[in-house]
Design a protein around this nucleic acid. Structure first.
Lengths: 199, 199
DNA sequence: AAAAAATACATACTTGGTATATACTAGTGT
DNA sequence: ACACTAGTATATACCAAGTATGTATTTTTT
């Protein structure tokens, strides 16, 4: 979703063509947002299909080897809509690490403790790297980049605190015998052969 | 990626079929991870293609209308690999809200302040909802779900703190006249017509 | 002049995800 | 008894996002 609107925003500032948009996007949003050049072209053609951008007539072009796009009225209104609409963070409830941890309790091919430890090592490594970057990024023009780093750092710290919480809670669990993470199908039971355990 | 390994983990516990796996996945990982049933089948066929799972021979089936899969040796080893390998969080550097904020400074069709405010309202709303859920989820069997909620809450709080930081930094910026978020292409300059400003 | 790098676009492919079509079974109401 | 609804079960078509690759031209470097 965001790539689409990033291109719209860039085109809202000035008409442009695929290759240039690719560079603009990287310089506007930084390395982590630099996308595959091919994606620029496919996204542009989808935007054109939906009437958000249009090709400049060739007559106005200085170079026949470039396909220059400009934003349309529909595109501008879509962009405004996107800007005003806040982004939902409910995808935070679909966390990969959580899933892995939960699955590790089911599958027994690895212990949750191991998963937590390995994950913590990784997070500490990444936190270290980001902190390095953060302290070396001090130029006055780097404010946006610094804000991005701060964001990532804050979330990494939250991840680490959460791992501690998990470890603690799981220890409490292991002390008691009750079976958590019990997993059984919701619907009709497996019906192996017509035998025992009928409701 | 995770859906693939979730199915592997479930099959590692016990052989199963698509429809059942769908239910198992929901009861093991909770609502936010409940996926479209169609995705189970396409993921299973990809897993089969890659040799991670295989269909049970029909002879062993009690019901000819079910396609039961079991995990293979390759599948088990892939699963172990995934469990031991920590997940990278470097995608935290590709934050949608950050991108939106940066783009809002470029496009001028909306002010960064507005974006921050709208986003904060949204986050507060979501935080409220999660806090409600958190306090009503107190059954002993809900520990995993509680951990998930805690995680989401912690990250929402980080988001909110980050928005405050942004607001503050942007105010400092607006007080000074220097042009941040300057965006120019990296490569060859636009070459409009063969005229001024040649290198 | 030749080699390397940058510019520019397009297409094929993979993956993740949604929507939809189909068919069968079991229970429920009238 | 009949229709309706809900549940079980699979498969396919479709779309969007993203990667890899192919190709051609131009500019810069050696």
């Amino acid at each position: 979703m965001t790539v689409k609107h990033a291109l719209l925003a860039l085109l809202d500032k000035d008409e442009s063509y695929g290759y240039q948009l690719h560079g603009l996007m990287e310089s506007a949003l930084g390395d982590p947002w630099s996308i595959n050049i091919g994606q620029v072209y496919s996204t542009l053609s989808r935007l054109e299909r939906d009437g958000f951008v249009e090709k400049l007539p060739e007559a106005e072009l200085a170079h026949d080897d470039r396909t220059v796009y400009s934003i349309t009225r529909r595109g501008k209104s879509e962009l405004r809509r996107w800007f005003r609409e806040p982004l939902s963070r409910d995808d935070r409830l679909r966390d990969d690490v959580y899933a892995k941890l939960a699955l590790s309790r089911i599958s027994r091919s690895v212990s949750p403790g191991e998963v937590i430890q390995a994950q913590r090592r990784q997070l500490l490594k990444e936190l270290h790297q980001l902190t390095q970057l953060r302290s070396s990024a001090d130029g006055p023009n780097e404010l946006p980049y610094i804000l991005l780093l701060e964001s990532a750092i804050m979330h990494l710290e939250a991840d680490l605190k959460w791992l501690d919480l998990c470890e603690q809670k799981l220890e409490e669990l292991d002390a008691t015998p009750s079976p958590y993470f019990e997993s059984r199908p919701r619907g009709r039971p497996p019906k192996d052969d017509g035998s025992a355990s009928g409701a």
